[in-house]
Amino acid sequence: MSSLSRDEVAHVAMLARIQLSDEELDKLAGQLDQIVGYVGQVNEIAADDVPPMSHPLPLVNVTRPDEVRPSLTQEQALANAPASDLGRFEVPRILDED
């Protein structure tokens, strides 16, 4: 383990929806392999009986009252949109044409 090939970087970049150029892939693959090698040392700790910690605070089920409260107007919500139409976000097609 602790090694990351150029193909794997390309695959993960696709999963993360980042279209990398060939030059970027060449550069990032080497750096990421080095970083993955370093962070892999977390496996040097025998921790089978150690519970995982996801969060510093022991909080559970923090809720708020289920009440209507002020929120953004439609105009505010759309103000930063790359494109909008008829009071809605306008997005590129989501289906293939064939």
Partner: peptide
């Protein structure tokens, strides 16, 4: 091997 193990290290640090 990565995220899960890192969370355990986090417990040990706490």
């Amino acid at each position: 091997a990565y995220y899960g193990q890192a969370q355990k290290v986090r417990t040990l640090i706490a």
